[in-house]
């Protein structure tokens, strides 16, 4: 997938899934699959989900743009309702994340490995803030900050449109993905269907291998 270059814009601009910048970006349909039962972290979760469908969202349409400063992803998928605040104990919220390798060779299927982190940008419908998450293996995810990644979702006509964005490069010691125009990296996405009780490792994801992400170079004339 290409992350299309767009002329420099305010961070806010990207967060509107209806914004003009998104018209230019080519969308890609990603097939999603449920995370394997055997990889769920605890015996209780495996017992509770044995024989149940994991990953109820089968596909998502994904687009990406950058303006030399900010990289933004737009995810769209169909969802029966856009309930944000779960009102009862057995109700959960929809969510979505983009995951990027922090270093070459980090495995996506296990959400990284010790010393080989992956970096997730995580949005949840009931949370104003998006989370900037680092993981070095299943169950090791930790939020490194709630400021750098911004996310915004709108639910309309049975579809979620969610934008998740962050500056290409950020100043931190944390093992996060540092990006640059013209570079190529991998990416993956995950979608949680709260209505279906999905949370944590129970989710739909874009598969065990990285998808390619090619960031456009910044055109000469604008440099």
């Amino acid at each position: 997938m290409r992350a299309h270059y767009v002329p420099p814009a305010q961070f806010e601009t990207f967060l509107d899934p209806e914004a003009a910048v998104w018209k230019e970006a080519g969308r890609e349909e990603l097939k999603l699959e449920g995370t394997p039962l055997g990889m769920q972290l605890t015996a209780h979760i495996r017992a509770a989900w044995a024989g149940r469908k994991i990953g109820s969202v089968a596909r998502a349409s994904v687009a990406a743009v950058h303006d030399g400063q900010v990289l933004a992803f737009r995810l769209e998928w169909s969802a029966a309702n856009g309930g944000r605040e779960p009102a009862d104990n057995h109700e959960f919220t929809d969510g979505a994340a983009v995951v990027l390798p922090s270093s070459a060779g980090a495995p996506i299927i296990t959400m990284g490995a010790p010393g080989m982190a992956v970096n997730a940008w995580y949005w949840r419908a009931d949370d104003e803030r998006a989370r900037h998450v680092v993981a070095e293996g299943l169950g090791s995810s930790r939020t490194v900050d709630v400021e750098l990644v911004r996310g915004r979702g709108t639910w309309k006509d049975g579809r979620w449109c969610v934008v998740i964005a962050r500056a290409l490069r950020v100043d931190t010691q944390e093992p996060i993905a540092q990006l640059e125009p013209g570079a190529e990296t991998g990416f993956g996405v995950a979608v949680w269907d709260g209505n279906h009780g999905e949370r944590a490792g129970i989710k739909a994801f874009s598969g065990p291998l990285w998808h390619e992400l090619q960031l456009d170079a910044v055109p000469e004339t604008t440099r």
């Binding site: 015996a43 209780h44 017992a47 509770a48 044995a50 009862d88 104990n89 057995h90």
Partner: peptide
């Protein structure tokens, strides 16, 4: 010794 699935009690 094997985990048994459980239900989430509602507020009601």
């Amino acid at each position: 010794g094997t985990a048994v699935p459980g239900k989430l009690p509602t507020r009601k």
